[in-house]
Amino acid sequence: VTLFVALYDYEAITEDDLSFHKGEKFQILNSSEGDWWEARSLTTGETGYIPSNYVAPVD
């Protein structure tokens, strides 16, 4: 499982989006939707859509 880490803070715009803070880690559930990925936060356990350009793979 490839994990991703937030590079910036993000505040949800719609109820389907997931708010997060810089440094938060995610498991990507679906990355086939283009620039918005469905993800689960490993910090909160919540799922929602995140902007793919706000995250990077964890080394």
Rank of each mutant, 00 (worst) to 15 (best):
A39Y: 02
A39P: 00
I13N: 10
A6D: 00
T2F: 09
V58N: 06
I50L: 07
S52G: 07
T14Q: 12
A39L: 01
L3R: 05
E15T: 11
E33C: 13
E33G: 14
G45A: 05
D17M: 15
E33N: 15
A12R: 07
F20I: 05
G48K: 02
T44W: 03
V5D: 01
A12W: 02
A39N: 00
I13F: 09
N53H: 12
E24D: 15
H21D: 06
F4M: 08
L29T: 06
E15G: 13
N30G: 09
V55H: 01
Y8P: 00
T2Y: 12
E38I: 15
G23Q: 02
D59L: 11
D35E: 13
T44A: 03
P51K: 07
N30E: 07
Y54D: 01
K25M: 15
N53F: 10
I28A: 03
V5M: 09
T14N: 15
K22V: 10
I50N: 00
L3K: 05
S32K: 11
F20L: 05
I50V: 09
S41C: 07
R40A: 05
R40N: 04
T2V: 13
A6C: 02
A56K: 10
E24N: 06
E24A: 06
N30I: 06
V5I: 13
E38D: 04
V58W: 14
V5Y: 13
D17C: 14
Y8L: 08
W36T: 06
V1T: 13
L29A: 05
T43K: 14
L3V: 14
E38L: 15
R40P: 00
Y49F: 11
R40D: 01
W36E: 03
E24R: 01
L18Q: 03
D35Y: 15
T2A: 11
L3F: 10
N30M: 07
Q27H: 11
S19M: 03
W36R: 15
D16S: 14
Q27L: 14
S31K: 12
D16E: 11
T43L: 13
Y49P: 02
G45Y: 07
A39Q: 00
I28F: 03
W36M: 12
T2E: 10
L18R: 02
E38S: 09
G48T: 01
F20C: 03
E33I: 11
L18M: 13
W36G: 03
S31I: 12
T44Q: 03
T14C: 15
A12Q: 06
E33A: 14
I50T: 01
V1H: 13
D17I: 13
N53W: 14
T44H: 04
F26L: 08
D9M: 04
F4Q: 03
P57C: 06
V55Q: 01
I28N: 01
E38Q: 14
S31M: 15
R40Y: 11
V55C: 05
T47V: 13
S41Y: 03
A12E: 02
D35R: 10
E33W: 12
G23N: 05
V58Y: 14
Y8W: 13
D17N: 14
E11M: 11
F26M: 06
L3T: 09
E24G: 02
E46K: 15
D35F: 14
L29V: 08
F4N: 01
T14F: 15
E38K: 11
K22H: 06
I28K: 04
V55S: 01
V1S: 13
V5R: 05
A12F: 02
L42F: 07
A56H: 08
V58L: 13
A6F: 01
S19C: 05
A39D: 00
L3A: 06
P57Y: 06
D35L: 15
Y54K: 07
D9C: 09
S31H: 11
F4R: 03
I50D: 00
S19Y: 03
G45R: 05
K22D: 02
W37D: 01
S31C: 13
S31F: 15
Y10N: 03
G45D: 06
G48W: 02
P51R: 09
T43F: 10
D17R: 15
W36D: 03
V1E: 14
Y49V: 07
L3C: 08
L29E: 05
W37A: 02
V5C: 06
Y8I: 06
T47L: 07
S41V: 05
R40Q: 09
G34Q: 13
S31E: 09
T14I: 06
I13K: 14
R40G: 01
S32V: 10
A12C: 05
A39T: 02
A39C: 05
G48H: 03
L18S: 02
A56S: 09
T47K: 10
K22W: 05
R40L: 13
K25I: 15
S19P: 05
D16Y: 15
E11A: 10
E24P: 00
S19T: 09
N53E: 09
D9L: 03
F26R: 00
A39G: 05
D17K: 15
A56M: 11
A56W: 09
S19L: 02
Q27Y: 15
G34I: 11
L7V: 07
T2K: 12
A12V: 02
F26A: 00
P51H: 09
G23A: 03
K22C: 07
D16W: 15
N53L: 09
S31W: 13
S52E: 03
Q27N: 07
D17W: 15
E38R: 10
L3M: 10
T47Y: 08
V1L: 13
S32Q: 12
I28P: 03
N53I: 10
T14D: 12
E11Y: 11
D35N: 10
V1G: 13
D17F: 15
I13W: 08
Y8T: 06
Y54E: 01
H21F: 14
N30V: 07
V5S: 04
D59W: 13
D35W: 12
G48R: 02
A12Y: 02
E46D: 09
F26D: 00
E15P: 13
D9V: 03
E11T: 14
L18A: 01
E15Q: 12
G23E: 03
D9W: 04
G23H: 04
Y8M: 09
R40M: 12
S52A: 13
Q27K: 08
L29R: 05
K22E: 07
L3G: 03
T14G: 15
E15F: 10
P57I: 09
A6S: 05
L7K: 05
V58S: 07
P51V: 02
V58H: 08
F4L: 04
V58T: 07
S19Q: 04
V55E: 00
G34S: 14
S32T: 11
A39I: 03
T44S: 09
Q27M: 14
G48D: 00
G34C: 11
S31A: 13
A56V: 14
A12P: 05
E24W: 09
S19V: 03
Y49Q: 08
F26S: 00
D59Y: 13
I13A: 12
P57T: 06
I28Y: 03
E15D: 14
S31Q: 13
A6G: 04
N30T: 08
Y10I: 01
R40S: 05
V55A: 04
Y10F: 11
E33Q: 14
N53D: 09
E11V: 14
W37F: 07
A12G: 12
A39K: 00
D17G: 15
L29H: 05
Y49A: 05
N30A: 08
G23I: 01
S32P: 10
F20S: 01
A56F: 08
F20T: 03
H21I: 12
F26W: 01
Y54M: 10
F20K: 00
F20D: 00
E24V: 04
Q27F: 14
I13V: 14
S32F: 10
Y54I: 05
Y54A: 11
D16K: 15
L3Q: 07
Y49D: 02
D17A: 15
K25S: 06
L29K: 05
P57W: 06
V58G: 05
K25Q: 11
V5K: 05
W37G: 00
D16R: 15
F4T: 03
L42C: 10
W37N: 01
V55T: 04
P51Q: 06
K22I: 09
F4C: 07
H21N: 11
R40W: 07
A56N: 06
V1Q: 14
K25L: 15
E38C: 14
A56D: 05
W37L: 08
S19G: 07
D17H: 15
L3D: 05
V1M: 13
Y10R: 05
E33F: 13
G45H: 07
Y8H: 08
L18C: 02
F4E: 01
